[in-house]
Design a protein around this nucleic acid. Structure first.
Lengths: 203, 203
DNA sequence: GTCTATACCGTGATAGAC
DNA sequence: GTCTATCACGGTATAGAC
């Protein structure tokens, strides 16, 4: 039983799988879905290209496994409404910071790869749900929600993909400080009170 | 001289060239640089692929010709400082609206194609120049400038590339109305007066 | 001179042999 | 688990047709 002296087959397989996944995250993050190649992933993982296929089936499935990121915006949105904009920014960027390669993979590919675009859209559809509880959702309110998403998306793209120094090196606190008033402004229609917040609810 | 009865060679050539250019704008806008193929462009232009090469040399040069868009931010920035944020939004989106395919080409490709990324960066470097005249450009101010760019970029991406209905169908006036206060908020440091504006200049 | 047909060469995903 | 073959695709060069 010499083959169990260091590690079992299952252990070796699991380690290979993890190496592939990590390599995939890097390559997809750097090059996006289309320009990333199975060969490059395999090379960086130190294994054969065919092994990658064996573990993950095809390129698309590998991508899905590698770019998995748990934003769970429901969790982010929970809490007192008057701190919503701060929690939103903090929650989103803390979660993205935890897996920069995974989010970069999705973001980098979103404009040229349908599956990634849909993934981003899912995030979008969570974000602007805020503040649409009681008031009738008129057109401008929907637009405002989308623009909050646009600001978030633009910031994420410049931070994780384009890597503009100022945005990349900023702390989450910095981002919160700068973005929070802007999001408040987007939440507030010209006429008066913010569309979210709890002005209609008395203690 | 029967060959001049309908059109000269030069005229035919020019029309073919224009057809190629228009087809290229569409294809690049729809698919981005890498997924767009010379063959598809030629097909849509109703000519042979080699003809495309003859007119434009190579794919990259064709792309440059097709995605040319004149933002000329210097022009946009000129004027009284207290209306800057409005003029910024209006100027940028009016110019982009004039050539949606061209701007979409650049935007769609910016995350996977170096030349497009540089093009976008050029636009970025113009935008946040605002308000950096007299005050020492501290870090946070630089970040704020970039975030204005991020908001603009995110909005443009959702309008021209991802085509989210609310953002795509909004008029420039709608965008101005919603974005202007957000940009003001980004221009304003927490301590006090906005970093642009003309508080230091007396009449 | 303007356009077309075809060939070349590299690349990448995937399947099947070892 | 690995190596090799297959197949399709796309950018580009060349040769010739009108």
């Amino acid at each position: 039983m010499a083959d169990t002296s260091v590690s079992t087959r299952a252990e070796r397989s699991a380690r290979t799988r993890a190496a592939i996944l990590e390599a995939a995250r890097q390559v997809f993050a750097e090059r996006g879905f289309e320009k990333a190649t199975i060969r490059t992933v395999a090379e960086r993982a130190g294994c054969d290209p065919s092994l990658v296929m064996q573990h993950f089936g095809n390129k698309q499935k590998l991508f899905e496994a590698a770019s998995q990121v748990n934003l769970d915006v429901a969790e982010v949105s929970a809490g007192p409404a008057d701190e919503l904009s701060e929690r939103l920014v903090r929650g989103v960027f803390e979660r993205m910071d935890a897996r920069p390669d995974a989010i970069a993979s999705t973001l980098r590919s979103m404009l040229t790869h349908d599956a990634s675009a849909k993934e981003v859209l899912k995030l979008f559809n969570l974000l602007p749900g805020i503040g649409q509880e009681d008031e009738q959702p008129d057109e401008q309110q929907a637009l405002r929600g989308r623009l909050i998403g646009a600001l978030t998306l633009g910031t994420a793209v410049t931070r994780y993909v384009l890597k503009f120094a100022e945005v990349e090196q900023a702390s989450v606190d910095d981002l919160v400080e700068c973005l929070q008033p802007a999001i408040e402004a987007l939440l507030t229609p010209p006429n008066g009170q913010p569309i979210s917040g709890q002005p209609t609810r008395q203690p």
